[in-house]
Design a protein around this nucleic acid. Structure first.
Lengths: 154, 154
DNA sequence: TATGAAATTCCCTAAAC
DNA sequence: GTTTAGGGAATTTCATA
């Protein structure tokens, strides 16, 4: 759980895992010049340190006909309680794929992911229009996912 | 590679895989009421159909001290060639975590992920300020990642 | 065309060094 | 850090409705 030193091999290994976590310890070891056991020991350490949160399947949104939308939101009141309430609310909604608290002209960026355009509008209405906590919001429909992922550059 | 019918079990299975792809076929089978063999067969089919793109490791950005920023971009010229050039450029930059083509007041949403704030500013400058193709852009630093992921609701 | 069960192979895991 | 040994999972094959 404590911060361990991160060397070049760690960076390379974490980078590879972010690209494809479906490879064997042998394959990963060949890539970074380590034995499978050494790779496993490092990965175990990442988990214990909390650096590696988990592994998830990535679906092809376009092929599934999923509709994405970006929503910029500003709250009515700037109190911690209101921000906490908003954060908890969006966290519990399955159609909210991502949500970031911002500094600047907008308070939040919300990424919506829905099976179709109608559902997208419904969720947006339900989530923002009906919330008196929301002062203003702007929906920017996505027409192409140029690049997606969760990879962080180390 | 062709579109297969997606039944309730498929939806449940894909949903579970999006939450945690690190479980055994037995565990997944228990969740959806199928034998390990049947689960594996379905997963193989998802891959063949292109519905399942892959599996990736998710790192804890906050713990790694990663700095995120959201950038809204509008291009100077609206031609397909200019859009293609922009898309190709951001795709090749490691610090660009996500990029979506939008409809509305902005052409693109770009999510930057960098080791620190200085690098974030550098990448933003290099990527947008120096590009004559970019008419205007607005950087919105991320204060807090309320919710992250790539999961699509089915 | 789907399933579940069995047999094989391979990998992950945890030792010992 | 590597090598080794054992248990477990993934994969394949097969029988079936």
């Amino acid at each position: 759980m404590q911060s361990s030193p991160v060397d070049d091999v760690d960076r390379e290994l974490l980078d590879q895992l972010q690209r494809d976590a479906g490879r064997t310890l042998r394959e990963l070891g060949d890539l970074v010049g380590l034995s499978p056991s050494a790779v496993q020991r490092r990965i175990t350490r990442y988990r214990a340190d909390g650096v590696l949160a988990g592994q998830v399947a990535v679906l092809d949104a376009a092929r599934l006909g999923v509709v994405l939308a970006v929503v910029l939101v500003t709250l009515e009141l700037d109190s911690p309680a209101h921000h906490h309430a908003f954060a908890e609310r969006v966290r519990g909604v399955g159609e909210v794929q991502q949500c970031y608290a911002l500094t600047g002209r907008w308070d939040y960026l919300v990424v919506l992911s829905t099976p179709d355009a109608e559902r997208c509008r419904e969720v947006g209405d339900e989530l923002f229009r009906r919330d008196p906590n929301v002062k203003r919001y702007e929906v920017l429909p996505v027409f192409d996912a140029v690049k997606t992922g969760l990879a962080v550059s180390l």
